[in-house]
């Protein structure tokens, strides 16, 4: 085989392998966090998790004095109560996405040691229609599913 042919063939194989990786269901490879439904399906007390979901409206309680923070994370199907000690990041609010690190406790709540706020890829000026994005849209960005 000519050298040129060898390189064209090799390049083709590389491109094909990369394309296979992109399109052939590597989709769930790195699970950065579990959703509340996944956690509820088989919770293991004491095991470290990253839990991601939307902060359910009207569930957020914060005591500035004792730094006790409690809220409920939901994915539209199920929800998980979360407790944390400390100040949440600024972007953290009801109706927004969040990822927490911590452990599931036997008392039936999630004890978070780190709270991270998740924001979407939308960048908009504050004026105009400032309607909060819908439940579904937020979950879509939360899961990082850019492609439907």
């Amino acid at each position: 085989m000519s050298r040129r042919g060898k390189f064209l063939l090799g390049g083709g194989v590389i491109v094909a392998a990369l394309a296979y990786m992109i399109y052939a269901g590597v989709s769930q490879s790195v699970v950065y966090f579990v959703t509340p439904s996944e956690l509820r399906a088989q919770p293991v007390a004491g095991k470290a998790y990253r839990l991601g979901g939307m902060v359910q409206p009207a569930s957020l309680k914060w005591e500035p004095r004792s730094l006790d923070l409690s809220f409920t994370l939901s994915d539209g199907k199920t929800s998980v109560p979360v407790r944390h000690k400390g100040t949440p990041p600024d972007l953290f609010a009801e109706g927004r996405g969040a990822v927490v690190e911590g452990t599931w406790t036997t008392e039936g709540y999630f004890k978070a040691s780190l709270i991270m706020a998740k924001h979407s890829e939308e960048y908009k000026a504050p004026h105009g229609d400032e309607a909060q994005p819908g439940y579904k849209e937020l979950l879509k960005t939360l899961k990082g599913q850019g492609n439907p």
Binding site: M116, K118, E121, G144
Partner: peptide
Amino acid sequence: FSVLWWRTLHQPPT
């Protein structure tokens, strides 16, 4: 492409 197929804290590319 990682951001498109992996669940991540980083928002999808704008």
